[in-house]
Amino acid sequence: MEVSNIFRFRKKDHSGIAAFLLHLHPPLISRERIRLTFTFCMGGLSFYFFLVLLVTGILLMFYYRPGDGSPYLSVREISELVPYGNLIRNLHYWGGQGMVILILFHMIRVVLTGSYQGARQWIWVVGMVMLALAVIMDFSGYLLRFDRETFWAGFVALGVVKEIPYLGEALHRVLTGTSTYGQGSIQRIYLWHCVVLPIAVVCFMIYHFWKVSKLGWAGRAL
């Protein structure tokens, strides 16, 4: 195959951001790579779910109030008063659950095809970090509802954080801004959920996709 003719950009040496973008969005994709049973598309689907969560999450931020009023009341307002609010909230909720499940299946596939080895090990490590972040985001979103059920869930979970030897108290203070979990903690949980963790996940994602594209999928060059 006359690669140099097809990849016209090969004639110029691309570096930096151009090479990065071309890895993320190559002009040609092999037939093998888009076959469904090759990876079952689960990494891509979890990214798609992430996009859905991003859009619906931003929409929910227009109405959610983490402050001194009742956060639960604003959740009730979204699902009972705002037009299509229930749709948007349920898309966000089920999107979150679906993303965690898809990431798990994606990782099972990676283990079964042995794609975590060798040069790909950092893709795997970053993937595990993203799994952890996804679970934390899922749980912190659950805490934002702040009804009786999720209050006790947060109370127990952050109580466990507090029990970490030496670091616990300080970590609890950093995560929630309070010494005991309560409504005052929701402001911080909200920011972790909506701003800090998503930005971190996007950074890891960029590395993940770039490296996957660069090394080829499951041992085959693109």
Partner: peptide, 9 residues
């Protein structure tokens, strides 16, 4: 349209 309705409350 859905977003427009959602944001108009």
């Amino acid at each position: 349209r859905i977003i427009q309705a959602f944001l108009s409350a």
